[in-house]
Amino acid sequence: MLRQTDPQASKINPWDNGYLTPLVQKQSYGFDRQEARKYFNYPKVRGGILQLSEDLFRVDIKPWKTALWHPKAEAYEMFEGGKLIGRFYLDMHPRPGKYEHANVVPLRQGKGGQVPVIALVMNAPDGLMEHGDVVTFLHEYGHLLHGIFGGQNQHWAGQSGIATEADFGEAPSQMLEEWVFDYDTLKRFATNEAGQPIPQELVAQMNRARLFNLGMGDMRQLGLSEVALRLYQQGAPADLGAAYRGYVNRYDLIPLPEWSQGQNSFSHLAGYGASYYTYRWSKVIADDLFTRFAREGLRNPKTAADYRRLVLAPGGTKPAAELVRDFLGRPISIDAYKAEMARAAR
Rank of each mutant, 00 (worst) to 15 (best):
Q221E: 09
E54R: 07
L256V: 06
N103M: 13
T5N: 12
A204V: 06
P125L: 02
F40C: 01
Q34W: 13
T191D: 05
L224T: 03
L128N: 08
G81W: 11
L269D: 00
A320Q: 10
Q27E: 15
M92G: 03
W64G: 05
G315T: 08
M175Q: 09
D55K: 10
T164H: 03
E322S: 11
I61L: 07
D55L: 05
L2W: 05
Y276E: 02
A163W: 05
E80R: 13
G147S: 13
E140D: 09
R330I: 06
A342Q: 14
L145N: 01
A274N: 01
S260G: 06
L328N: 06
G97K: 00
I118T: 08
Q4R: 14
H146P: 04
Y251R: 00
S333H: 01
G316A: 09
D335A: 15
I285Q: 00
Q27L: 15
L186N: 06
E77M: 13
Y99S: 12
G48I: 02
S282K: 02
Q4L: 14
Q25L: 07
W64D: 11
N123Y: 02
M216C: 11
A204I: 02
P197V: 04
S53C: 14
I12Q: 04
L231Y: 03
H143L: 10
Q4K: 14
P7L: 07
G217A: 08
E340F: 09
R309E: 15
L90P: 04
E296Y: 01
Q114G: 11
G113W: 01
V135K: 07
G316K: 01
G217Q: 08
P237E: 07
G81I: 00
A124G: 06
A342S: 15
H101E: 11
G161A: 08
Q196R: 13
T185H: 10
V117P: 00
A339V: 08
G30N: 04
R37F: 10
T191F: 02
L23N: 01
Y19G: 11
T303D: 06
Y76A: 11
S225G: 06
V105S: 04
G271M: 10
F189I: 07
P14V: 03
D326N: 13
T21L: 14
I285T: 06
W69I: 13
K111L: 12
N123K: 05
I12F: 05
S173A: 14
S333G: 04
R309Y: 07
I198F: 08
G215I: 11
K11W: 04
W259T: 13
Y277A: 02
G315K: 02
D16P: 01
R230Q: 14
W259C: 12
Y29R: 04
S282Y: 08
K38R: 15
D167H: 14
R325P: 08
S28F: 14
Y89M: 11
S267Y: 14
P7G: 03
D133P: 06
I254H: 02
A73G: 10
D239K: 07
P331A: 10
Y42V: 13
Q109I: 02
L214W: 02
K44F: 13
S267K: 14
G151R: 03
E80A: 12
L23W: 00
I198N: 09
T5G: 15
I285P: 08
A236I: 15
Y272G: 09
I198Q: 00
I334R: 12
V180D: 03
M206G: 00
K283M: 13
L84C: 11
